Amino acid sequence: DVEEQIRRLEEVLKKNQPVTWNGTTYTDPNEIKKVIEELRKSM
């Protein structure tokens, strides 16, 4: 579920933690925001 994935990513973003997405680890909050944007567009 895309909305659930977005929620999880936003939680990680709030905690300022790195997130691994599709085999890539993002540590930059701006990169994580881009991933969230892409997910929103795909909905």
Results as ranks from 00 to 15, higher is better:
4 E>G: 06
6 I>H: 00
29 P>A: 11
13 L>I: 11
1 D>E: 14
27 T>M: 07
34 K>Q: 11
30 N>M: 13
32 I>A: 04
19 V>C: 03
9 L>E: 00
36 I>N: 00
12 V>D: 13
6 I>K: 01
16 N>R: 06
43 M>D: 05
37 E>K: 05
9 L>C: 01
2 V>K: 07
21 W>K: 01
40 R>L: 10
41 K>M: 12
25 T>F: 14
11 E>Q: 07
26 Y>H: 03
39 L>K: 00
10 E>R: 04
31 E>W: 03
23 G>Q: 03
6 I>R: 01
24 T>S: 08
32 I>T: 02
13 L>A: 06
22 N>Q: 13
10 E>P: 00
3 E>G: 10
23 G>A: 02
27 T>R: 04
33 K>P: 01
33 K>N: 06
23 G>H: 03
38 E>K: 06
31 E>K: 04
33 K>V: 09
43 M>V: 12
33 K>R: 14
3 E>Y: 12
29 P>G: 06
27 T>G: 05
12 V>C: 13
14 K>D: 09
39 L>T: 01
14 K>W: 08
29 P>D: 04
16 N>I: 04
38 E>N: 09
9 L>H: 00
33 K>A: 12
11 E>R: 05
12 V>T: 13
22 N>W: 06
39 L>C: 02
20 T>F: 14
18 P>Y: 07
9 L>Y: 03
3 E>P: 06
33 K>E: 10
6 I>D: 01
10 E>S: 04
21 W>H: 10
8 R>C: 06
9 L>M: 09
20 T>M: 12
6 I>Q: 00
20 T>G: 03
6 I>P: 00
26 Y>D: 01
29 P>K: 07
3 E>R: 08
12 V>E: 15
29 P>Q: 08
8 R>M: 15
4 E>M: 08
28 D>Q: 06
18 P>T: 13
21 W>Q: 02
26 Y>W: 04
40 R>P: 00
18 P>Q: 13
25 T>K: 05
4 E>C: 03
25 T>N: 06
8 R>E: 13
35 V>I: 15
27 T>I: 10
40 R>C: 03
35 V>C: 05
43 M>F: 09
15 K>E: 12
19 V>D: 02
10 E>M: 09
5 Q>L: 14
37 E>C: 04
23 G>M: 02
4 E>Y: 08
30 N>F: 12
40 R>H: 05
22 N>S: 04
24 T>R: 08
15 K>S: 15
30 N>E: 15
30 N>W: 12
9 L>P: 00
30 N>P: 03
27 T>L: 08
14 K>V: 10
22 N>R: 05
32 I>K: 00
25 T>V: 15
25 T>P: 03
39 L>V: 03
5 Q>E: 11
18 P>N: 11
11 E>I: 04
5 Q>D: 13
9 L>N: 00
13 L>T: 03
27 T>E: 09
4 E>P: 01
33 K>D: 04
25 T>E: 11
35 V>T: 03
27 T>N: 12
18 P>A: 13
31 E>T: 06
14 K>Y: 12
26 Y>R: 00
38 E>Q: 11
27 T>P: 02
41 K>T: 11
27 T>D: 12
32 I>C: 01
18 P>E: 12
34 K>M: 11
14 K>M: 14
26 Y>L: 15
36 I>A: 01
37 E>R: 05
34 K>W: 09
23 G>W: 01
25 T>M: 11
25 T>D: 06
39 L>M: 05
32 I>P: 00
26 Y>Q: 01
12 V>Q: 15
11 E>M: 08
32 I>Y: 01
32 I>D: 00
31 E>R: 02
42 S>G: 12
7 R>M: 09
17 Q>I: 14
20 T>E: 15
36 I>V: 06
34 K>A: 14
17 Q>Y: 10
27 T>Q: 07
29 P>Y: 08
34 K>R: 09
5 Q>R: 04
42 S>Y: 13
36 I>D: 00
4 E>D: 11
2 V>E: 03
28 D>T: 08
11 E>W: 04
15 K>H: 14
11 E>H: 05
11 E>S: 07
15 K>W: 11
42 S>C: 09
1 D>R: 05
43 M>K: 03
14 K>I: 13
8 R>W: 15
38 E>Y: 10
16 N>Y: 05
16 N>P: 06
42 S>F: 12
6 I>N: 01
13 L>K: 01
34 K>I: 06
23 G>K: 02
21 W>V: 12
21 W>F: 13
31 E>D: 13
16 N>E: 09
14 K>G: 09
2 V>N: 04
5 Q>G: 05
26 Y>P: 01
21 W>L: 11
9 L>V: 03
40 R>N: 04
7 R>P: 01
6 I>C: 00
16 N>G: 15
10 E>N: 04
13 L>Q: 03
7 R>K: 09
34 K>E: 08
12 V>R: 13
23 G>C: 03
42 S>H: 14
24 T>G: 04
37 E>I: 05
23 G>F: 02
36 I>M: 04
25 T>R: 04
30 N>S: 13
32 I>W: 03
1 D>Q: 10
31 E>M: 10
21 W>D: 02
21 W>A: 02
15 K>M: 14
30 N>C: 13
8 R>P: 01
28 D>R: 02
37 E>G: 04
36 I>Q: 01
43 M>G: 07
31 E>F: 07
18 P>C: 07
11 E>K: 05
38 E>T: 07
1 D>M: 12
4 E>F: 07
24 T>K: 14
12 V>H: 15
2 V>T: 10
40 R>M: 10
19 V>F: 10
38 E>S: 09
3 E>C: 04
18 P>G: 12
11 E>L: 08
41 K>N: 14
27 T>A: 07
5 Q>N: 05
37 E>P: 00
16 N>T: 04
3 E>A: 12
23 G>V: 01
30 N>G: 12
18 P>K: 09
33 K>L: 14
42 S>M: 14
11 E>T: 06
2 V>W: 11
13 L>Y: 07
31 E>I: 07
1 D>L: 12
7 R>A: 11
7 R>W: 09
37 E>F: 05
37 E>V: 05
14 K>S: 14
17 Q>W: 11
28 D>M: 03
